[in-house]
């Protein structure tokens, strides 16, 4: 399920079946020209990625809106904010909270996150329309799906 009216309507009726939130963590900045392309591309890929996972497991998963943060910003502040997202979800109760990201910076702070971090190394550049990328995403989605299922 996604953060759209149709899905949310369904969610309210089937609350007891939905216990997992996925939050994509996506860095954003405009200050470093050399990294812009890479970060924008990763942001696109991660959004697609998150949607694909949601599609496979839509009946039990709520895909939250993307969480954007300033790459150069204070990690501590962001951690607080992210954890307040988790806190809000946990009251529902959503028992499983997953963060997906391409940003390795979160790996260091994994312990402080209220939820499970799924850090995906890899994709720096490529063509979103290419078949290789499609099958790459497809395979990754399958594996991450397996991983998420193991928590159920």
């Amino acid at each position: 399920m996604q953060w759209i009216k149709e899905d949310v309507k369904q969610y309210i009726q089937a609350k007891e079946y939905v216990d997992t939130v996925i939050v994509p963590l996506i860095p954003y900045h405009l200050s470093k020209d050399s990294e812009l392309e890479k970060n924008a591309f990763q942001s696109e890929v991660l959004s697609i990625f998150a949607k694909e996972i949601e599609k496979e497991l839509s009946g039990r998963v709520m895909l939250s809106p993307n969480y954007y943060y300033l790459k150069s910003g204070s990690k501590e502040e962001e951690l607080n904010r992210i954890n307040s997202w988790s806190g809000d979800a946990r009251t529902q109760p959503f028992n499983n909270i997953f963060f997906v990201t391409f940003d390795s910076a979160w790996k260091k702070d994994e312990q402080a996150l209220d939820g499970t971090l799924i850090w995906l190394p890899g994709i720096q550049s490529g063509d979103l329309k290419s078949n290789e990328l499609h099958s790459f995403i497809h395979d990754q989605v399958e594996q991450i799906g397996e991983y998420i299922k193991s928590y159920w």
Binding site: Q10, A14, Y17, V18, K55, E56, L57, S58, G59, R60, V61, G145, K149, W152
Partner: peptide
Amino acid sequence: ICKHLGCVVSWEGSEQFPDQFYCPCH
């Protein structure tokens, strides 16, 4: 598409239930 809440079912998706479609969500 599972008729329950729309997850994707798979054939023999669970080893306990051969010869059936299985929905991983519920």
